[in-house]
């Protein structure tokens, strides 16, 4: 096992192993995320990016190994502790927006702040500001079912950034977006991270988007292959696996 990590690692993991119902997803990964950096985790579908982000962001409990955040252990925390950590310290953007459908855009963005105990006024002011910054200020009072996927994803990004958490995890946040919108959202995400000194862990299957990151690691079959260097791969498959399987069988 390696020695203690450098002091400036905000999140670090050592030898984490995680499997889903017997299928190994992570096979012993050690990784450190430095304070204030934008780290890209690349790899094809099924390489374990989402699982790694899930373990680092205290959503999934690891089977083996250790996860630390700011010199305190995450792997020993119970459910309530992980919940508190997620609420107070981490932001998360998934590959789908997963907005609460009955809340308006600004309520969705203000929700994490309200959950953390912020006042109503402060929460909604921050929500409006972030929606404006992400170019969705004009739909702040609309519900997600009236909006297109791209707008919903921007709202999801605003929701993750509004509480200004020390670490933001983005799991393929550009999956539902077309190229132009994807670039814009990533630019906003990375520039917000840099200007507010947030740490951003960005998982992406698109090797081209690595240029937004300060550093990149590549995952293949649950193992880190080439730390600190992006691995150029062929054109990755488009669309979600479930949807493609279904459309292939539908006539």
């Amino acid at each position: 096992m390696s020695a203690a990590p450098p002091d400036n690692d905000v999140v670090w993991a050592r030898g984490i192993v995680k499997s889903h119902y017997g299928t190994p997803a992570l096979r012993g990964i050690s990784i450190g995320v430095r304070d204030g950096e934008v780290l890209a985790v690349t790899g094809p579908r099924g390489s374990g990016k989402s699982t790694l982000l899930g373990c680092l962001s205290a959503q999934l409990a690891v089977d083996e190994g250790e996860v630390w955040f700011n010199s305190s252990p995450v792997h020993t925390l119970g459910r309530a502790g992980r919940e508190r950590l997620r609420r107070d310290r981490f932001g998360f953007v998934g590959s789908e927006p997963h907005l609460v459908p009955e809340l308006t855009a600004r309520e969705n963005v203000a929700l994490p702040l309200l959950l953390a105990g912020a006042g109503n006024k402060a929460a909604y002011t921050a929500a409006d500001e972030w929606l404006e910054r992400l170019d969705v200020g004009d739909v702040a009072r609309q519900r997600p079912d009236r909006l297109v996927q791209g707008q919903c994803q921007r709202i999801a990004v605003a929701r993750a950034l509004a509480p200004l958490p020390p670490v933001v995890f983005a799991d393929d946040p550009t999956a539902p977006l077309h190229r132009e919108a994807a670039e814009q959202v990533l630019r906003i995400l990375t520039s917000a991270a840099r200007s507010h000194q947030l740490t951003l862990v960005l998982a992406t299957h698109d090797p081209e988007l690595v240029r937004f990151a300060d550093r990149a690691v590549a995952l293949v079959d649950g193992r880190l292959t080439a730390p600190a260097a992006p691995v150029p791969r062929g054109t990755p498959a488009q669309g979600t696996p479930g949807a493609s399987a279904v459309t292939a069988t539908r006539r």
Binding site: Q59, E83, R86, F92, L115, A116
Partner: peptide, 16 residues
Amino acid sequence: RDVTEALLRLGASPRL
């Protein structure tokens, strides 16, 4: 279920 999962991921407590 999706919404519940998203809320839990945001850190909403099951008690809430």
